[in-house]
Design a protein around this nucleic acid. Structure first.
Lengths: 225, 225
DNA sequence: TCTCCTATGTTGGAATTCCAACAACTGTTT
DNA sequence: AAACAGTTGTTGGAATTCCAACATAGGAGA
């Protein structure tokens, strides 16, 4: 158990909480360490939604099945990442997703109800924990907002430019570096890599853009295209 | 001021808080009621991100400008709705958006820092408020997750079916009613209304679907298309 | 009933995307 | 240098979407 404290203190969920407080906190929250074999579920859809999980080792997958059993992968989580907050905090009765171990994994399960309501005046880490959850959810919200804005553009070119303009703004310069490669960027924007490549070439030839690898430079010629 | 308490108690942000507690709470949180004329800003991009706003009357618009000044509308808020939580809770230094009044409006501004940290042991509504914010953010997260999942499908048909399958599942029946009209549904899915209409017709002719207005019925024939 | 209005469905050609196959470039290893 | 793997750019035809214009249906009100 103690062996995982060094992982936990690095996890965003526990940011600001000292390692020596960890044990008391886990006790207060009713934390349970569980081992899950590769392919086995951490929990299944329909489980009461009051769990927050933290991956300690291995890796897990959050999946959702539709009405006809077609399965889609919502996210893949590495050690240190947490899952389930959104469902538990949204006030759902039951989990709308299942979580499976992709490798043999260790997972810490917390009871979300205890996090949100109990004893907030005695444990000082309690409000810290809530703020961390809040911060995580809020950041995901912002990330989603951006992604949806890019994806809502009609054409590949518009999606790409919307993204690049945002990057320029965030990094405060028309010259900047994007955090991923072409394929990953295309996937993120919901476009085809080859179509995106073609658009980039066109923009280059038109003198509106320069790029090499993950480095981009926008020329100051834009208004509304 | 008191005149707005009846609006506030209906607002999701203050759900569970009694009208008689409202005054004390607003004092504790440093709430400020402000009037904004049509077209004027509630706040501008760059303002320190620690505000949460609640629309009391009129209506406001959240807008974001890109690096070259192209403006896009992120959301439109009616009385009772709140804004700014995501930015404040995400730990941003400054607001990345501006908020403008679309009509003459009354707005309540709260200091998010006070909500999250102060005096959580004395005011019992404090933890309620935090839970309400948490719940709101979590619900938006789930909504975004779904929307992104639909929009990530390649074709109009796939986007539509992903949505319909989800609706069937959520409503627990292959027969269900969608909460909006064709045009709004198309906009939400990021497709063209006419293309969507065409797909619906095809599915109907293929006997996979029946629909009239907002009523839909999926036939049990699907596996993976 | 007739008219108006809005929501929805239909259609055809232009524009765009998708997909597969391949070419060019880069960095690494041998 | 040569071989190799991985990333990025190019291209052409099939599939799909976009867009405008029009058709149809149903409801509200005169």
């Amino acid at each position: 158990m103690e062996q995982y404290f060094s992982i936990l203190v690095q996890c965003p969920l526990f940011s600001g909480i000292e390692q020596e407080d960890m044990k008391a906190m886990l006790k207060c929250l009713g934390g349970k360490f569980i081992s899950v074999s590769k392919g086995d579920p951490v929990f299944l859809e329909g489980t009461p939604a009051q769990l927050v999980g933290v991956v300690l080792s291995g890796g897990v997958q959050v999946v959702q099945d539709d009405y006809y059993g077609n399965r889609s992968v919502l996210s893949i989580l590495q050690p240190g990442e947490s899952f389930g907050e959104a469902f538990s905090c949204a006030g759902l009765e039951n989990m709308p997703v299942s979580v499976f171990a992709m490798k043999d994994s260790q997972v810490l399960l917390l009871n979300c109800g205890r996090i949100l309501t109990l004893c907030s005046h005695t444990c000082h880490f309690h409000s810290l924990l809530i703020q961390n959850i809040l911060k995580g959810l809020a950041q995901k919200n912002l990330a989603f907002t951006q992604k949806v804005r890019y994806m809502s553009q009609k054409t590949t070119k518009e999606k790409l430019l919307a993204y690049l303009f945002d990057q320029a703004k965030q990094q405060g310069s028309a010259e900047f570096v994007v955090p991923c490669e072409r394929q990953a960027l295309a996937d993120y924007l919901g476009v085809e890599r080859t179509a995106m490549s073609a658009e980039i070439s066109k923009l280059k030839k038109a003198g509106l853009l320069d790029t090499k690898g993950s480095w981009f430079c926008l020329k100051h010629v834009y208004q509304n295209n």
